[in-house]
């Protein structure tokens, strides 16, 4: 689904666990796209074809799967990055993630090309396309959230869900760190949050008021 400009959101609607994905079309030179968290190739329990459905939805938006040039991973869990390994092989796209989650991605057979750290990820499409990378550990040690200042969009990964927060009981998880990460993210000027999963809600929170209300509600969990 094209939300605005070159920003596309692909909300997972299957029965099994998989993540939400988003894409900035033509964000790189030569018409290459940037995709965030392509999810599972096949979901673990029901074998739903996550990547195939994603490619199909992209085609529906007129976005060519083979032109993916950069895959940004919010963290190294397989439900966010299994498909990145396939995309890397099929399209020779580069993979970017925080170094602290690299090992998890390597276990899936992936190779990291770019380490992300706090700062700006500038893209070819100019100033409007610059993305702020925020290291936001807690759900995993190398979790990053991605903020697009131009459109005030926060791609929250598994930090923030609709009226809920990410788990911290995985290896390297920390509830204290997650609390600090969410506190930091809550200070951004946000109009849209894309959550890592469609838990009890499609996972795309729209509007300043709803965003604010969600932050207020999840503070109780921290």
């Amino acid at each position: 689904m094209n939300v605005f400009d070159n920003f596309h959101v692909y909300l997972w609607r299957g029965n099994d666990n998989n993540c939400n994905t988003c894409l900035l079309a033509n964000a790189l030179n030569e018409g290459k796209h940037l995709i965030v968290d392509p999810g599972h190739v096949l979901t673990p329990s029901y074998r739903e074809p996550g990547l195939e459905r994603l490619a199909q939805e992209m085609r529906g938006d007129g976005v060519d799967y083979s032109s993916i040039g950069l895959v940004v991973l919010t963290h190294g869990h397989p439900d966010h990055c299994e498909a990145a390994v396939s995309i890397q092989k099929e399209t020779r796209a580069l993979i970017a993630m925080h170094q602290a989650d690299e090992e998890m991605f390597q276990m899936l057979g992936g190779r990291v090309d770019i380490y992300l750290q706090d700062g700006m990820l500038e893209l070819a499409a100019g100033k409007q396309s610059g993305l702020q990378i925020l290291h936001s550990p807690g759900h995993s040690p190398g979790h990053v959230a991605i903020y697009w200042p131009y459109r005030k969009v926060l791609i929250a990964g598994d930090c923030i869900f609709y009226r809920s927060t990410g788990r911290t009981d995985f290896p390297g998880g920390s509830s204290d760190m997650l609390r600090d990460s969410i506190e930091r993210l809550s200070r951004l000027d946000i109009e849209y949050i894309l959550c890592g999963h469609p838990y009890g809600h499609p996972g795309f929170i729209q509007g300043r008021d709803d965003v604010r209300e969600n932050f207020e509600l999840i503070k109780d969990y921290l």
């Binding site: 030569e30 970017a96 090309d113 770019i114 380490y115 992300l116 700062g119 500038e122 993305l131």
Partner: peptide, 18 residues
């Protein structure tokens, strides 16, 4: 090389290990 692809900025550190 990344710049040519349209990727740059302070958040970016190329993986030189491999």
């Amino acid at each position: 090389r990344l710049n040519v692809l349209g990727i740059s900025g302070s958040a970016v550190r190329p993986n030189l290990k491999d």
